[in-house]
Amino acid sequence: MVSLLWLQGGACSGNTISLLNAEEPSIVDLVTDFGIDIVWHPSLGMELGKNAQKLLYSLARGERPLDIFVYEGTVIMGPNGTGRFNMFAERPMKDWVIELAHQAQIVVAIGDCAAYGGIPVVDPNPVDSIGMQYFRRHKGGFLGADFRSKMGLPVVNIPGCPVHPDWVTQILVAIATGRAGDIALDDIGRPKTFFTTFTQTGCTRNQFFEWKQSASEFGQGTRTGCLFYELGCRGPMTRSSCNRILWNRQSSKTRAGMPCLGCTEPEFPFYDLAPGTVFKTQKISGSVPMDLPTGTDHATYMAHAAMARVAAPSWSKEDIFVV
């Protein structure tokens, strides 16, 4: 049995709800087939009665072993460092988090909020939210840069807004089946197995990206073209597996015609949603994308783009996702 405690701070519960969409394994399979003992979760039918606080204290004090501590949502520090914007079981949630994190074998930050801050930290960060071990890309966060769980690991960040259910279930199964040692993390705490490829990897619009052909507009305009050039898509510079492991077993945002928002990266939402930045590619001198595909620079990009446009075959300017 692997014990798991799941708490929610400055959260929308979207990661929990996303998890309920999982199959192979489903959330029920995690419990019945993989022996994950969910000692407490805010949305699932765990009966705890008046013992809830007693249980939480026994975990927080190390009297009862805790294998996995999953935290969803930001850690809320306000007002004035008291944490009273988010009370939980008689105390500010942040006080529970720091105690439980130090008792757990593995600490998992689920979703962009817990990992890096997400939407709640957008200017003016009204409740003084912070991620578990990061504030956006700055290491430190609530638990500090040097924090290590009892197993010696930093916080495992599974970002995304929300996370894909498989990113969670497969990591939990890895832990439950003795493969925790195979979970390699990148330089911002993400499991490399899901967050090394790009959102663009597997996108059905890649041929249009290759020939620098843009989708002209939304709706019928997305029957052809790439969303990167005009519509603000961050697929070429966002690390995720959204187009390798499809959403709801069916599709992905970019396949459907919605630009990637970069929600697995610490800067999400980019540009703090300032006027003019939503669903619009940011440009330098009106034509060149400000943010380029990872690993390129503007001189190289422009040379390559000019060549690609010249070489573009005629079909790349026609509708391809047709009725």
């Binding site: 979207g14 709800i17 996303s18 969409n21 807004c161 929300p162 939304f218 709706g219 019928q220 305009g221 997305t222 029957r223 959204c242 499809l246 959403w247 709801n248 077993r249 069916q250 599709s251 992905s252 945002k253 970019t254 396949r255 459907a256 015609g257 919605m258 928002l261 669903f279 996702f321």
Partner: peptide, 25 residues
């Protein structure tokens, strides 16, 4: 919500509805 994903890319948390229509066709 698989149907939602077919039209909106994913569920939860798509933003595929925009003023003037939807992003997908």
């Amino acid at each position: 919500v698989e149907i939602y994903a077919i039209f909106g890319g994913q569920w939860p948390h798509s933003s595929f509805m925009i003023p003037g229509g939807v992003m997908s066709a």
